[in-house]
Amino acid sequence: MSLGIRRHRKRKLKSEINVVPYIDVMLVLLVIFMITAPLLNLGVDVTLPDGKAKSLQQKQDPIVVTAYADGRLALTRAGESRPTAMESGALTAQVAGIVRNAPETQVLVAGDAQASYQQVWNAISTLKEAGVDKVSLMSVPGAAGQ
């Protein structure tokens, strides 16, 4: 009698999908993409734009931080005609002192045409460390569209 009972108990088909192999493949692809993604990060040379906009009239002369292609920074204080090259720490201290005494002072960043975006961004980060809330970028007026 037990033989008859065992024969009637056949395996039922499962209607579920076994997702374990798909998870394995997905994890392998994830590892491959995590390894190859940083290798695909290529640098792009950018020529900073020229602008048609007219310059803004300010009551006070702005201070200008210049970022050069080799990573150097220079500061041109209000009323000066030539930039003074200085290290990042000294520049931070100088700008922090100027902004502390006159918070309404406009701060501009001028990037050399051959300077990479990273050098300009480093100059902006240095100014943020000095406590400057608003930073403007300089361009060459009137040269666009020629």
Rank of each mutant, 00 (worst) to 15 (best):
M1S: 09
L3G: 07
L3W: 03
L3Q: 06
G4W: 09
I5A: 14
R6G: 11
R7T: 11
R9W: 13
K10S: 08
K10A: 12
R11C: 07
L13T: 14
L13H: 13
S15C: 08
V19I: 14
V19A: 10
V20Q: 08
V20P: 03
Y22Q: 11
D24W: 07
D24F: 06
V25I: 13
V28I: 15
L30M: 05
V31E: 04
V31F: 07
V31K: 06
I32N: 00
M34D: 05
I35F: 08
T36I: 15
T36A: 14
T36F: 15
L40W: 13
L40Y: 13
N41V: 12
G43V: 03
G43P: 03
G43E: 05
V44W: 01
D45Y: 05
D45F: 07
T47E: 02
T47H: 03
P49T: 10
G51C: 13
K52P: 11
A53E: 15
S55N: 11
Q57K: 12
Q60T: 15
V64I: 15
V65I: 15
Y68K: 14
A69Y: 04
L73F: 09
R77I: 08
A78F: 06
A78V: 08
P83D: 10
T84L: 09
L91T: 01
T92L: 00
T92I: 01
T92R: 02
V95Y: 02
G97H: 09
R100W: 03
A102V: 13
A102N: 15
T105L: 11
T105N: 13
Q106V: 12
A110W: 03
G111C: 12
D112Q: 03
Y117F: 03
Y117K: 00
Q119R: 15
Q119A: 15
W121M: 01
N122C: 04
A123H: 00
A123D: 00
S125L: 02
S125V: 00
L127F: 01
K128S: 00
K128A: 02
A130V: 00
A130Q: 00
V132D: 00
D133V: 09
D133W: 05
K134E: 13
S136L: 12
S139W: 06
P141D: 07
G142T: 02
A143E: 10
A143W: 05
